[in-house]
Design a protein around this nucleic acid. Sequence first.
RNA 1: GUCCCCAUCGUCUAGAGGCCUAGGACACCCGCCUUUCACGCAGGUAACACGAGUUCGAAUCUCGUUGGGGACGCCA
Length: 542
Amino acid sequence: MTVDLKARIAELTSLEQAEQLYPARNLPAGAEVVRVAPSPTGMPHIGTAMQSVIDRALADKTNGVFILRIEDTDTARTVPGAVDAIIAGLKWLGTTPDEGYSFGGDYGPYLQSDRLNLYKLAADHLVAKGHAYACFCTPERLEKLREDQSKAKMMPKYDRLCSKLTAEEVTERKAKGERFVIRMRMPKDGEKIRFKDEVRGEIEFDTKVLDDSVLLKGDGFPTYHLAVIVDDHFMRVTTVVRGEEWVSSAPKHVMLYKMFGWEAPKWLHTVLLRDAERRKLSKRSGDTSLAGYRVNGYLPEGLRNFLTRVMWAHPENKDIYDLAEFARLVTPSALPSTGPIADMKLFGFINGHYLASHKPAELRQMFVDYLDYLVSVDRVPESDDEEGGPIVPLETIKKLRAEIAANTEYADHVFALEPERHQKLSDVFRNCGFLFEATYTPATAELMAKHCPDAAMAKGILGKVVAECLDMPDSEAWDKAMRQIAADNGVKDKVVFMLTRVAATGMERTPPLFEIMHMLGKAKLSQRINAAIANAGTSVAA
RNA sequence: GUCCCCAUCGUCUAGAGGCCUAGGACACCCGCCUUUCACGCAGGUAACACGAGUUCGAAUCUCGUUGGGGACGCCA
């Protein structure tokens, strides 16, 4: 950045100067300037991710610009570290902004708390024009007002008490040091405000349902309503992409553009993702932060694909497509106007495709990075069945990480084994954990008994497997020998196979038996099976 | 209480007056493959919220009802 924009803003004395500070952008015709504008009040949410995908796609599609702006105007709710988490989240998702906070650009600063003077000038301008007024009502009075209105089954709305103050009264009360806010003066009742939403079409509101909203707070910070208009205008944003919850305040924003005499951008309100209860995804629906999905083993390209899949239908009915394809084919009017329910099964299906599309060495590296990530954030994936709960302790993850690092070649074999078994990186623990010492759990006597209730026979069978099969050269020989053992004991082949599987892995569900026997090797196999023999029947006999 | 948005299989949707005895995908069920699981392959169950109207003809247009969601802060 060649100029210190923060300093320049502080020096501004009029809105006209601001117009000169931020000249029209030099972009190709049709280029969309879009922004994602999260407030740093917590970990980045899935809704922010959804908007960023649309933003990124729109900017890519039109050779436009995607901006990150941080809306930190609520000083009380600002959470330390949230900004970094937002940036990290967007980078992880692959919807990296072109411009904005920490990305640079000529239309900054991109942190609203660095732009306070601009909002003040804007508010003064509106007051001077008669479109806004100072309000000295105390929070207590307002609360009482709302309470009374609620009791009377009326819509809570400011009663415009201070709009009747004379200029002299205002000057006098300010001089006395009374704390005040600036409110917008909505037009007289009965006027219609229309605007076009890019996905819903024309929407009309009556001004009588619109409140004289606060524009500038008592602490000199702007509210969302003022800040968003001023910033979108001076950042030369062409399309406002934001959540559906903003539709009802959009008329206020349209009115503000009119009051300023500025050209309004296009409006695109995205649907809100719902949980199984059809409510908007929130804390109660589980961890819906970006980091939460990462912790649970979802891939960024999987999340990206899932997010677009539930709010857009591919013209060829495809489920799997990348961001570039989405950007190329999407049109705002094709976006849905009903909030989709986040179907985790569909998410798993899509994510699994991406997982399986990687080569073993890539998968191994992704898994290692995943483990490192878990350690770095000190979190573990949760089981997605009814009971939930962590599926593996952090200590185990650290050991597994070391074990993989010590023998990457072996690990690559593990990841070459039916990668389509995994839908999420965290599924590797359940599907392949037994192939590593860190995550191997020996078979219980009960599990053994399930496949061969006669403990003595089980011991005999497994003893023979250890004695006769492990030195054999290949799967074919194993197969033949194991079937012979079954015949000798008068049991079905399956009994021998399952007993061996359970004894060697501690699991009933595994990749093909001979493949994992080859991988485990003779030493480990005989050790595990012998341990199982020693353990067999212990709790059943007792 | 008021306003705004929305309404096709369990879920995401296709559908812009006749191509719809409503198509696809996920999920589910069944079969094949098979020593388990997964993959794959072959089938199946399953929806136009309701009521009027417009029309020769309505999932598609209009109105109403019902249902769902969102908003109404010196929060965003």
